[in-house]
Nucleic acid binder design. Structure first.
Length: 931
RNA sequence: GGGCGAAUAGCUCAGUUGGUAGAGCGCCUGCCUUACACGCAGGAUGUCGGGGGUUCGAGUCCCUCUUCGCCCACCA
């Protein structure tokens, strides 16, 4: 997947430009990864087919082929890329399989809009021409999004790029249909479905999205036959459907209407009698307790109609206009014929009002379903559609999650999944579209029974029974009928012998948004069990949504979106990625300000720049020639700072490992205690950032500057440790910020040409978790430096001025501090003099952990009264803390019941605080006593 | 109508077996200290939504209220 050409050549080999420029660096690096085949998975190496590596597989949720990258895609694919790169470094044979979705309705709508501009409709072109044109459009403009993904660093295996409408995947779709049909799980149903009058197709339940709407509830009076003085009042939100009414229903237990059941009312306007029936569906509490029954235009009414064997006249056509369609003889008066349903509503209400039939109209809140693609109000409509029977498919999918074979993260989705799966309804898979997989069903005009359909893997040329011509079903399949096969079909299914399928199925983690949990995830799980006999993945990572500062979902129509390409252009892909990963708790939404990209992405940009500058520092001070091998260093060679940073690196690695968690469950299924483990990418990012910035850059680099400038063996040690630690940091960070880390890694001393950070190994923490004494000593130095800086800042000592301090140190520390005088002088700009007791006089006083006391005489700078006040405040604070600590320690319940390590820690803290209290009191006595 | 989630520093959010709170951005002060001003050093800020309970001890567990958000549902 080539991305845009680098605009300038990369900087000279041995130096880094003063300013990091992602716009030139990133495309060049991506190109090299591509050329080196870093992202191409080798099925033969999968241990499942006898290779030497465990596989790790992610399938990319295929974006719509016509889609343009938005932040949601950025978020989704960044998470996947972090996982893919991490797994790759962990030595897995990693396959991240990309692709696109032909997106039936969505794509067809786009092309129809284009046609509309030319004054044409798809019918003007005809089916064949229209499909050709759409295919050409997809060919031409499709897949832009994949290139955009490449430019944010996606390490997908582009050699395996899939497409739901490709010939291979079309075979899979047909195979799935035929197998389900053969198993009796696909049937043609005649029932009320959701119909979009704009897209002119049926929709699945999931595709018809309910929206809270303020409508009206109309009370209409239907006179009772034979007793014109009395009438039944029905309540309806959709009076225009009354032309299709075939009955009114009351609850059999509703005493108000007992005597009327079996009689008839006269349907107004049409003046025809319709029966009064009893059915539980009528809720006595709602409205008047009388409901009009329109079987062709309401799913519930349809059920009632079926129970009572009522006729089902269709009075609204496919465009949502009143008209006589089926069984509707004489139902639509000429003056209403062809009138749009909403206008018809007003007209009919008007007619009923004139006839005195409108009792009242009240405001009513209710849910109205809208088409998820074009937002048109969906029309329930009676028609013939293909359905998949879901109950049997749902069983193993439900069990898979219950047993831990699959886990959903965050775990709160388990309940939602469970509920949906347990109450699953049959899936309407036929769409009256032209763009999509044609239903593999043929009809023979000659054969007697229209129910004897031909369902076939191959296109039949003639009727197998009579040899006559056959006609294929006009409908296409729901796009999701191809998507639900994605983890299998992209790997070669239905060819069970396909190497990819054997090497990489089942996959590992599915990363997606919760919005498509039912559309896609649940169905993939069902398909996995139905066709492969196993779950398609072991983890589902459901991430949050990108929202603006008002919490609104970013969308094109609201104009509150952020174009990730703008961010890449301005700040680089790494900045985008880091910001997204660091800002996103597990399953939490990411809030970004579309009006201020700088503010939103400064975090990531600044971090990439920081890394770059650490790299520059290293290169300037160490050069590119190989340094002493880190493994050859002996513990006694190491300085205190060296030991400390190595300990910190170990800790960072361990914490990162814990945050990302295990690659997969230990034995097939997740055990309860590990169900929620890992995939805390924000924690991982924060740990790595803290290590590299607050520890490596802020302390280690500063601590070794002198050593790096002083030739000799110790310089070699410092160089070797610096290179080792920075190398470790780059490895830790690579999955999140791949470009800048790769650029820097390539420049590390001793880098072997042709090797890539992207395919090198993930760092391993040393086996021992105990920290060295030297490392603890460095922390003492840090404490002193921080204390001195605080003193300097507080008393306004000019930065250039060095100050002298007395140290009252316990013997064991004196040697350490004595040896590190130069370091202390540089970092704290303080010269130390050792004394055994605090000298009296005006001075700032700092008590450090471990019993070291610093006294800073500040002739002419110190305000004795101010210092005394400060010491008093410190003492008061300490007393308060100590009091609560001692109260806790005095509490038998705490000592007996708290874990011993907690109690021990509290005791140690108490001892230290008491010692500090004594020092403080003494100091206050000597300094403030005389005042 | 059911179910679920969230409420923590000015803003966006971390806080995984209960042990007296953290980050980024913003803010204040001082610094262009030869890697970095996209930076460095220092600093301020929280009755962890209200109330009740369990516990020696609760941001963390239970109940309840308030406010937001999401999902599901055949009440016309």
């Amino acid at each position: 997947m080539p991305i845009s050409e680098p605009t300038e050549s990369a900087p000279a080999p041995d130096q880094l430009s003063a300013q990091y420029d992602p716009a030139t660096t990133e495309p060049a690096i991506y190109e090299r990864w591509q050329q080196a085949g870093c992202f191409t998975a080798d099925a033969a190496r999968s241990s499942r087919v006898g290779g030497d590596r465990e596989p790790y597989t992610l399938v990319m949720p295929p974006p719509n082929v016509t889609a343009i990258l938005h932040v949601g895609h950025g978020l989704n694919n960044t998470v996947q890329d972090v996982l893919a790169r991490w797994a790759r470094m962990r030595g897995r044979e990693t396959l991240w399989l990309p692709g696109t979705d032909h997106a039936g309705i969505a794509t067809q709508n786009v092309v129809e809009k284009q046609l509309a501009k030319e004054g044409l409709t798809r019918q003007d072109l005809g089916r064949e021409k229209f499909v050709e044109r759409t295919a050409a459009f997809v060919e031409e403009t499709g897949g832009v999004i994949l290139q955009q993904l490449a430019s944010i660093g996606a390490s997908a295996d582009w050699s395996r790029t899939a497409y739901t409408f490709s010939p291979e995947l079309s075979v899979a779709v047909r195979e799935a249909f035929v197998r389900l049909y053969e198993r009796g799980l696909i049937y043609k149903g005649h029932r009320v479905i959701h119909w979009c009058p704009r897209c002119l197709t049926s929709l699945s339940d999931e595709e018809a999205e309910p929206q809270e709407t303020t409508g009206a509830l109309y009370h209409l009076a239907y006179p009772i036959e034979g007793d014109a003085s009395r009438s039944l009042v029905v309540a309806t939100t959709r009076p225009e459907t009354m032309l299709g009414d075939v009955a009114v229903a009351v609850n059999p237990n509703d005493e108000r209407y007992q005597g009327l059941i079996g009689k008839h009312v006269i349907l107004p306007i049409l003046d025809i009698p319709i029966p009064i029936i009893a059915d539980d569906y009528a809720d006595p509490e709602f409205g008047t307790g009388v409901v009009k029954i329109t079987p062709a235009h309401d799913a519930n009414d349809f059920e009632v109609g079926r129970r009572h064997q009522l006729p089902m006249p269709v009075v609204i056509d496919e465009h949502g206009r009143l008209g006589e369609i089926a069984d509707a003889a004489g139902r639509v008066p000429p003056e209403l014929n062809g009138v749009d349903r909403f206008e018809a509503r007003d007209r009919i209400v008007e007619m009923l009002r004139d006839a005195g039939r409108l009792v009242k109209k009240e405001v009513h809140q209710h849910n109205v379903r809208h088409c998820y693609r074009c937002d048109t109000v969906v029309e329930p409509r009676l028609s013939d559609q293909w359905f998949v029977r879901m109950t049997t498919l749902a069983e193993p999918a439900l069990a898979g999650v219950r047993t831990g074979r699959i886990r959903l993260l965050p775990e709160k989705w388990n309940g939602v999944y469970e509920h949906w799966m347990s109450n699953i309804r049959d899936w309407n898979i036929s769409r009256q579209l032209w763009w999509g997989h044609r239903v593999p069903v043929w009809y023979c005009a000659a054969c007697e029974s229209p129910n004897d359909v031909i369902v076939s893997r191959e296109d039949p040329t003639e009727c197998p029974r009579c040899g006559g011509p056959v006609v294929q079903d006009e409908d296409v399949l729901d796009t999701w009928f191809s998507s639900w096969l994605w983890p299998m079909s992209t790997l070669g299914w239905p060819n069970d012998r396909d190497t990819d399928l054997r090497a990489f199925y089942p996959t590992d983690v599915l990363v997606t948004a919760p919005e498509i949990l039912f559309f896609w995830v649940a169905r993939m799980i069902m398909a996995g069990y139905a066709f492969m006999g196993d779950a398609p993945f072991h983890s589902v990572y459901l991430h949050g949504t990108a929202r603006d500062t008002q919490g609104r979902k970013m969308s094109k129509s609201l104009g509150n979106g952020i174009d990730p390409m703008d961010v890449v252009q301005l700040y680089g892909a790494d900045a985008l990625r880091y910001t997204l990963v660091a800002g996103m708790g597990l399953g939490a939404d990411v809030i970004l300000d579309p009006a201020d990209l700088e503010k939103s992405f400064a975090t990531g940009r600044n971090f990439a720049t920081k890394l770059w500058n650490i790299g520059r520092f290293l290169l300037n001070n160490v050069g590119t020639d190989p340094v002493r091998a880190f493994d050859e260093l002996k513990p006694e060679d190491l300085g205190r700072a060296d030991s400390w940073i190595l300990d910190r690196l170990d800790v960072a690695i361990r914490e990162c490992d814990r945050s990302i968690g295990p690659l997969n469950p230990t034995d097939g299924a997740w055990r309860d205690e590990e169900l929620g483990s890992g995939l805390r990418l924000n924690e991982y990012a924060e740990t790595a950032r803290r290590f590299v910035w607050n520890e490596l850059a802020d302390w280690y680099l500063e601590a070794i500057k002198t050593r790096l400038l002083t030739p000799g063996p110790d310089q070699q040690v410092a160089r070797a440790v610096l290179v080792h630690v920075f190398d470790g940091a780059l490895r830790l960070l690579h999955p999140i910020v791949p470009f800048v880390t790769e650029a820097l890694w390539q420049k590390l001393p001793g880098h072997v040409d042709g090797t890539f950070l992207a395919t090198t190994s993930w760092p391993v923490a040393s086996a021992s978790t105990t920290t060295s004494a030297a490392s603890g000593e460095f922390e003492l130095i840090q404490n002193i430096v921080e204390a001195m800086r605080r003193v300097r800042s507080e008393y306004g000592v000019p930065p250039g001025k060095s100050i002298d301090a007395f140290v009252v140190a316990v013997a064991s520390y004196r040697q350490v501090l004595d040896q590190e005088r130069a370091l202390l002088a540089r970092l704290a700009r303080t010269a130390l003099t050792f004394v055994d007791a605090a000298p009296s006089g005006a001075a700032a006083n700092v008590i450090l952990p471990g019993g070291t006391e610093l006294i800073v005489p500040l002739e002419g700078l110190i305000d004795v009264k101010k210092e005394c006040a400060r010491l008093q405040t410190d003492l008061a604070g300490l007393e308060k803390q100590l009091a609560s600590l001692e109260a806790r320690l005095a509490n038998p319940g705490f000592v007996e019941r708290a874990p011993s390590h907690v109690v021990d820690a509290e005791r140690a803290k108490g001892d230290e605080w008491r010692a500090r209290r004594e020092l403080l009191r003494a100091r206050i006595g000597s300094l403030c006593g005389q005042a």
